[in-house]
Simulated scan of single mutants.
Amino acid sequence: MKPVFAKILDGKINDIYGLKVIDLPYFSTDFHFHEECQLTYTIESEGSVMIGDSIANFNNDELIFVGSNLPHVWHNSKQYFKDELINSHARSVSLFIHPEKILHIFREPENIQRLKNFFLLGKRGMKFGLKTKTALSNLLIKAVQETEEIRILIVVLEILNLLCHTKDYHLLSSPGYTNNYQLKDNDKMDKILKYIFDNFNKVILLDEAADMCHMNKHAFCRYFKSRTQKTFVTFVNEVRIGHACKLLTETDQQISDLAYCCGFNNLSNFNKFFKMAKGVTPRSYRKMLWAN
């Protein structure tokens, strides 16, 4: 799934920041990136989220910051696209901020450096902890409810101030991640990533993935790694582990059964890859959750 370059604020009367509210049966955005930073509060929805080279599951009540030109997509679980799930919703509130134009307002070095550092760090993507998430989500909702432009601006400045001072977050993409996607890329990545997200719980063969993109296996591996900075096998397993974490959190399903539900063909492989990704075994991960 190649990321499409998107123009978010271009041509708007207020091209420094913008607000967007989504209330649909499912998120329909393609894998994309844009100059504007994006702060998104997911009110209601679930599925997989890809931010740079980070792949994880998302759920209700999550807040994520996406830095400038960082590829990203929220992709809903398969059941959202089925006719019988007529009451499903994808609801979110997003604030888009053009970093260069915001920084231009605060020209003096003592006013700009903290904000500049935040925008730089935000290029890896951030997910916020409970305290900061609650404060920021309340401000986002307040901003979309305001009707006067000056009041919206005041709320936006409050959000920026909080972002600059909080340490209640963890970074998503790896330190060395860079956006290697090009606008001239065809739809190979778009096709293969959607396929992985929708079929991770089944057998996914490298040969079949390469055939989908009309490439030989070796060329496909080079292409995939150059774009995602991960091998194909690692990427698929990280999608599976993300879903496993969701099941470990939300159910008391037997770990052996859970492994097969996530697409692993045996418990040993599941335990090995889970520990590589999370640093603990699935059983220890669940105990830590229940202890809290």
Rank of each mutant, 00 (worst) to 15 (best):
I196G: 02
N271F: 04
L9S: 12
V144H: 01
V66C: 13
C164M: 01
P99N: 05
Y195F: 15
F33A: 14
F5D: 12
G129D: 06
C262T: 09
Q253L: 15
W74A: 08
T251W: 00
S256F: 10
L115K: 01
H243N: 12
M288R: 07
T281H: 00
L121E: 14
L193D: 00
Y285R: 06
E208C: 03
Y26Q: 06
M288Q: 13
D30F: 12
F5A: 13
R91H: 14
I204T: 06
G129L: 05
Q182P: 04
A219L: 14
N59Y: 07
E148L: 09
R124D: 10
V233A: 04
H34S: 11
A6Y: 13
K191I: 14
F264H: 01
L157F: 13
C261R: 10
G125S: 03
V156M: 02
S256W: 08
A135D: 06
K12H: 14
V21N: 14
R283K: 11
I16Y: 02
G263E: 08
N57E: 13
L95R: 00
N237K: 15
L248P: 01
F200H: 14
V156I: 15
C37H: 10
K7T: 11
G52N: 02
Y80K: 02
V93D: 01
I154T: 09
G125T: 03
V4E: 13
F200A: 10
D198A: 03
H218N: 15
C245H: 02
T166A: 11
S77T: 02
Q145G: 07
S137P: 08
N201L: 04
R286V: 03
K12R: 15
L130C: 05
A90S: 02
K202W: 12
L267D: 07
Y260I: 10
D168K: 06
L9R: 12
N269S: 07
D15F: 06
G67A: 08
K131Y: 10
T132Y: 00
K246A: 06
N199C: 08
